[in-house]
Amino acid sequence: MAPQALATTTQNAAARRLTGVQRAAVVMFALGETHGAAVWKHLDDDELRDLSAAMASLGPIDSETVESLLLDFVGRLSATGALVGNVESTERLLQQFLPKDRVGQIMEEIRGPAGRTMWEKLSNVQESVLASYLKNEYPQTVAVVLSRIRAEQAARVLAILPEEFAIDVVRRMLAMESVQKDILERIEKTLRVEFMAGLAQATRRDSHEQMAEIFNSFDRQTEARFINKLEEASKESADRIKQLMFTFDDLAKLDSAGVQTLLRDAPRDKLAVALKGASQAMRDFIMGNMSSRASKMLTEDIEAMGPVRLRDVDEAQAAIVNVAKDLASNGQISISKNKGEEELVY
């Protein structure tokens, strides 16, 4: 074998001996501060910890191995030509740099409903979907599952289940003592493999809903610019997004009890800034649901703050809307986009 070919083979072998996270560590070192900054800011806490630990314990890596890794990385990208960003390609790429179990955790977060634990994930699954799955399980298994999720979610699932089956589940929940760890782990594994994986494959989120959430995060000038451009390209899509967006002004559709619940949780300083840039009708609506003393104090706060940047108003209004969405997701208030339509649960 020629010396050059032998050297290349040796370099490739050295690169292959590195684990996925060690390969990522080498690439990040090679990218350096300037080019690596854009990557670091997209990593979550676990990824930062794993990658930092690998970098700290990497030891000396010869320049030939570094070059081999970078060439391999660039070669994989150039060989594909155009990039296709989807779940499968993302998983394949992560498997090149991260441990298998860590990749599984990340992809589960991407595919499944939001939540750190299995029980948090189940609490974010639509109750009709969860009930449809649970009605075919043993009542004791259902009792364990419902005892681990939020009470509000469990109540909605029980209401959908066949009555006799639901009563049997309730009786078992009442008689239930502590659940053995191995049984709980077995149920969690079954839910993850059979239910959550199938749900992830079956669920495809409406792209207009996703884009509406993105537009909600824009400041009003950026939002108007994008909406106007989108209307020129596709008025139908623009109209759909506008219908799905939930804005600060939509809080006027809350009932009195909902407004008062929101006001108890909304930061007072954010509320004052939000109302500073709101219409008089919106101010009257919010203050009309406050006591005279609280309304007077809020008015004084607004008048005392002087001119406020539009960007600060947008941020404050977005913060109040997020509080409302959190309250709605916990079942404390009900919010709807348009009067007379079905409620939108966030």
Rank of each mutant, 00 (worst) to 15 (best):
P3I: 05
A257E: 10
N322P: 00
M173I: 15
I286W: 07
R293C: 02
R293Q: 13
T247A: 01
A238R: 02
T247S: 08
L158C: 02
I214V: 15
G306K: 14
A318N: 06
L134W: 05
E108R: 13
G85L: 14
I214W: 08
G32E: 00
R293F: 05
M290L: 09
Q96Y: 04
Y346F: 15
D168T: 11
T10W: 03
M297C: 01
V313M: 06
G198V: 07
T117R: 11
R148D: 02
Q260W: 04
S237Y: 08
R111S: 05
A266V: 05
V308F: 10
L158R: 03
A166S: 15
A257N: 08
S329E: 00
E223S: 09
I286D: 09
R204S: 15
A56V: 08
A2Y: 03
Y346L: 15
F248C: 11
R264A: 10
R92N: 13
D101L: 02
F97W: 05
A30W: 05
T90L: 11
A212W: 01
S52R: 07
Q105I: 07
T190V: 07
V193P: 00
A233P: 03
Q280D: 14
V142Y: 05
E163R: 14
M297V: 11
K270H: 07
R23E: 06
P3M: 05
R150H: 11
Q332L: 09
N228K: 13
V103R: 10
K235E: 12
A252T: 14
R264F: 04
A304I: 04
Y138D: 13
